[in-house]
Design a binder for these strands. Structure first.
Length: 423
RNA sequence: GGAGAGGUGGGUGAGUGGCUGAAACCAGCAGUUUGCUAAACUGCCGUAGGGGUAACUCUACCGCAAGUUCGAAUCUUGUCCUCUCCGCCA
């Protein structure tokens, strides 16, 4: 959530920036400013009273020791009166703090200066394009037909075992999954990311830390008996590694990568968007996460984009980068770049990666700080990106590389798959 | 699933109602001294929120929440978590 510091510093600027996300922040922000004033005043009163009470309590102790009972009893009466008024003030203070938190939880992150105006995906800006565009015949098959033809993925079996959106990968299909995971992890390692294997199930505090809770409660599978959540992305457990910590400045940046299965309920999705591998309830992804000093975070973001771009180039897929407009960005993000690959048989772009800088928005909830040269604690910037999500990469690989002989495996992947064609 | 033990500052660990925001030790930081890596000595060394231009000062926090009390790390209740043993099992 946004820091009070940022809001108090210049509420009008915050409101103006929130407008880029098409969020009307005037009412909540102004209310927070007002509540914060109340909060300070109340705290001053309460603390002064508490100091007074502490003194009185101490003097009672002293009087008792000297056997001056009557005097002590007299002060006790005063204490009782002051205590009850202080209770009222304390309740006001707690109420103000609670309301501030509630409001801040409902206010999205402010977009970074470079975020373009816009309301929907239509308004996103294509930043860069690359990769070879495939030239397929008219009768090219979509990946779900290819998956069936070569017996790579059985969607119906998944329906039997679990339900729609839980495919069963078979034979070379399964091997391709494993190869991609290994490839992505190796590449992340080469770029300096330390691999971690996190839990796939997290507690409520972790969900709150990265912002999936409370806003996106319905998007996660919830094990109610234990109050655990299946992770929608490795971002959740990996970023939460740094919850409630103060990192020595010299240890930054922290760079981690992790493979995980990802679980998403995707309530409300339907139609061609969910056909085949386009949108699943369980999928595989390698995620990269960075914890940075604020002044370094935008350079880090560029590095992450370069890393993802490098992956797509090695996979010989046609790609482009979108700079998301304010309206299409996620709640918690300050700036997001989406990578999409061209799925030649479906004739559409598929999002395969999302790289974001959250600035201090997540860190504020996580209490992820570092100790600066000034010996004080400061909030870190957190960033993450997919590198990469598998299903749509597989969809594009299958569709774009189909030949009459079979499906060609890009060179960089062959040493991982152990085969160069699926036939 | 059954039984028990325990949660104190970066770590170890003392502390059963006021003088304890918290001993001591270790680690860390700053300095003094000594002609080697090193040692010794001195000081500092939690987080957060207030007030103050500042020096400084107030408040809260000993898993979390509520309660008893003039006063709680210390007593009561609830709750979460961890560990050990038994059972079950990869």
């Amino acid at each position: 959530m946004l820091t009070l510091q940022l809001i108090n510093q210049d509420p009008e600027a915050v409101i103006a920036r929130l407008a880029v996300k098409h969020f009307d922040g005037r009412e909540p922000i102004m209310r927070v400013v007002e509540l914060d004033k109340e909060r300070r005043a109340a705290q001053k009163q309460r603390d002064d009273n508490a100091a007074q009470l502490n003194k009185m309590a101490a003097s009672i102790g002293a009087l008792m020791k000297q056997g001056q009972r009557d005097e002590a009893e007299q002060i006790k009466a005063e204490v009782a009166a002051l205590k009850s008024t202080n209770k009222e003030i304390d309740d006001r203070l707690t109420a103000a703090e609670q309301e501030i938190t509630d409001i801040l939880l409902s206010v999205p992150n402010v977009p970074y200066a470079g975020v373009p105006e816009g309301r929907t995906a239509e308004d996103n800006v294509v930043e860069r394009t690359g990769g070879p565009m495939p030239d397929l015949p008219e009768d090219a098959l979509p990946h779900w037909d290819l998956a069936r033809k070569y017996n790579l993925i059985d969607f119906d079996l998944g329906v039997k075992i679990t339900g729609a959106g839980f495919p069963v990968y078979i034979g070379k299909g399964a091997r391709l999954q494993r190869a991609l995971i290994q490839f992505f992890l190796d590449e992340a390692g080469k770029s300096g990311y330390t691999e971690v294997q996190p839990p796939y199930v997290v507690n409520e505090a972790s969900g709150l830390g990265t912002g999936q809770l409370p806003d996106k409660e319905g998007q996660m599978y919830h094990c109610q008996v234990d109050n655990f959540y299946l992770i929608p992305t490795a971002e959740v457990p990996v970023t939460n590694l740094y919850r409630d910590v103060i990192i020595p400045a010299g240890e930054l940046p922290k760079k981690n990568c992790a493979y995980s299965a990802c679980f998403r309920r995707e309530a409300g999705s339907y139609g061609k968007d969910v056909r085949g591998l386009n949108r699943l309830h369980q999928f595989d992804k390698v995620e990269i996460v960075r914890i940075e000093r604020p002044e370094d975070s935008y350079a880090a973001l560029e590095e992450m984009k370069d890393h993802v771009q490098g992956l797509l180039e090695k996979l010989e897929l046609p790609w482009h980068i979108l700079r998301l407009c304010g309206g299409d960005m996620s709640f918690t993000s300050a700036i997001t770049f989406d990578f999409e690959v061209w799925s030649a048989a479906q004739k559409r772009w598929l999002e395969v990666s999302s790289v974001s800088n959250f600035e201090t928005y997540q860190a504020n909830r996580l209490k992820c700080r570092y100790r600066g040269e000034d010996k004080k604690t400061h909030l870190c910037h957190t960033l993450n990106g997919s590198a990469l999500a598998l299903p749509r990469i597989v969809a594009a690989l299958l569709e774009n590389n189909q030949t009459p002989q079979g499906i060609r495996i890009p060179k960089a992947l062959q040493r991982y798959t152990g085969f160069d064609i699926i036939d």
